[in-house]
Design a protein around this nucleic acid. Structure first.
Lengths: 117, 117
DNA sequence: ATCATATATAACTTATATATTATATAATGA
DNA sequence: TCATTATATAATATATAAGTTATATATGAT
């Protein structure tokens, strides 16, 4: 309910706030891929992509398994659940406080009345 | 459909990847607040919060109006729509490629068969 | 053994982010 | 007019992020 619990959420948002990582997540929505496969589309070195994967993994967005010398990546189970939940919670708060323009203008008016006393 | 269109999304994720800004957004879901009101809960100077608001505004997450010397902030109309849409799109991709563990293990097996020839 | 492939890590550079203090601006109120 | 309140901006320091190259490690192939 409050900002003390939002650490993991902040971490996920941070992980998604990079175009390379966002594209990697989109790619992984189609299924598993190895580091090399994931790196291929990008004008970037392999170590750079490895770092991005580490960020995604630390954020709990992806997991990796071991297949010989490959480390195929996939989206983590329920990776996006807390994002959805946060958005849903926010919408609920918004509708609970349903902030129509009319209401706001009315409130502005009464505030003025009080302040201008 | 591709990563060329994700600029605004990346910007929004970046804007939300900070605990202060996330808390501000949550607060604004309850309705308008001035900069000073928003700054109050944080152990941070007013200029710091002003900067955070600028980041949120640049990302299209909040708007401000002018009320005398105040600049009340509110969540932007449809602020979170593209986040929702992106998450929905991702889920759709995931279910389209429905990646059950069984399938993956089966595919691993056939890959092994081929590679170990 | 040796070489190639897949991946990770370290060292380093540069760019960006975040916070601070000091100060500017604009409107209010006395 | 002068002080106060609300907010923004500039200058600056510091931290973090993101990329590079070089190198290490592990597996697989010859």
């Amino acid at each position: 309910m409050n900002e003390l619990h939002n650490g993991p959420l902040v971490t996920k948002f941070a992980a998604l706030s990079d175009p390379t990582r966002l594209a990697i997540v989109q790619r992984l929505a189609e299924g598993e891929a190895t580091v090399t496969e994931l790196a291929a589309p990008f004008a970037m070195t392999q170590p750079a992509v490895s770092r991005h994967l580490k960020v995604l993994e630390s954020a709990g967005l992806i997991t990796r398994r071991v297949d010989k010398q490959r480390r195929p990546c996939r989206l983590a189970e329920g990776a996006l659940d807390n994002l959805d939940e946060w958005l849903a919670m926010l919408r609920q708060t918004m509708s609970a406080h349903y902030d129509r323009l009319d209401d706001v203008l009315a409130e502005m008016q009464t505030k003025d009345d009080r302040t201008t006393e």
